[in-house]
């Protein structure tokens, strides 16, 4: 565990180095996210909402946070494989003694943690700037998202495996980003057909508990946990399969 933690810290340091080096992109993305938050607070409230009913605003903001969070987790897997391959050091990452899959997990953990911290800060900043304070319990939200995120990582690993073998999978990656919007919005609790989709039950549970202040039910929690575990396992197994295929065909590191 300590070795895994050490990998996570290493990846976080790398991200911070890169954020500093690519400062223009870092500033631009922070500004964009702030503008999106402010847009949600001001624009929607001004043009779409009536009276003091801010529940729609809360829901929209919450949906945006969930989507951004799941996108960060998902793309941290796919972009790592695609970008590191393009940069030329994917082979070096495969030389990690803990195995490449664990390294990917460390990258995801780092990206998700940083994404969450960033999003929390920006959300509060936007609320302070706009003067519209909404009820979002981030302390409750974060553990629920951590329980949900493995299903998205599973999706990322599946597409990452495809990228390892077929190299260009941009269309699938972009399609999946759009699909995540739907998965965040679809009601998947109590148990229904949508409960079998990745991310959907976790997003629903987070909405119920954090936004609608409902009590955490063991059944719902179990559905989310099983959903996450199954999709993560499918992701890991399919990634291992594609990794073996890439190793057989000498495709690792080739672009």
């Amino acid at each position: 565990m300590s070795q895994f933690l050490s990998l996570c810290i290493n990846e976080t340091k790398l991200s911070l180095y890169e954020m500093k080096q690519y400062w223009f992109e870092t500033v631009a993305s922070i500004m964009m996210m702030t503008v999106v938050f402010l847009g949600l607070f001001f624009g929607i409230k001004t043009f779409l909402l009536t009276g003091d009913d801010t529940s729609s605003l809360d829901g929209l903001l919450f949906g945006y946070i969930l989507w951004s969070f799941s996108t960060a987790a998902y793309s941290s897997v796919t972009s790592s494989i695609i970008e590191d391959n393009q940069k030329g050091f994917l082979e070096q990452l495969f030389l990690c003694p803990q195995g490449y899959t664990r390294l990917l997990m460390a990258k995801v953990f780092s990206a998700v943690s940083m994404g969450f911290v960033m999003m929390t800060i920006l959300a509060y900043l936007a609320m302070a700037l706009s003067g519209n304070w909404i009820e979002l319990n981030f302390a409750k939200l974060f553990p629920l998202l951590l329980l949900t995120v493995p299903s998205v990582i599973g999706l990322g690993l599946f597409l990452g495996g495809l990228a390892l073998v077929y190299k260009r999978v941009d269309t699938f990656v972009a399609l999946m980003m759009l699909a995540l919007m739907g998965l965040v919005a679809v009601p998947a609790l109590p148990l229904n057909w949508a409960s079998f989709l990745p991310l959907a039950p976790g997003a629903s549970l987070a909405r119920l508990v954090v936004l609608e202040q409902q009590e955490l039910s063991f059944n719902d929690l179990s559905i989310v946990a099983v959903n996450s575990l199954v999709y993560l396992l499918i992701g890991i197994l399919s990634f291992k399969h594609f990794e073996r295929m890439a190793k057989r065909k000498n495709l690792i590191g080739q672009y």
Binding site: L14, Y17, E18, Q21, Y22, K87, G88, F89, E91, Q92, G253
Partner: peptide, 12 residues
């Protein structure tokens, strides 16, 4: 060292 200088992060 498998791909020479491409093995490292150029921005670090």
């Amino acid at each position: 060292v498998l791909e020479g200088a491409r093995n490292v992060h150029w921005r670090l």
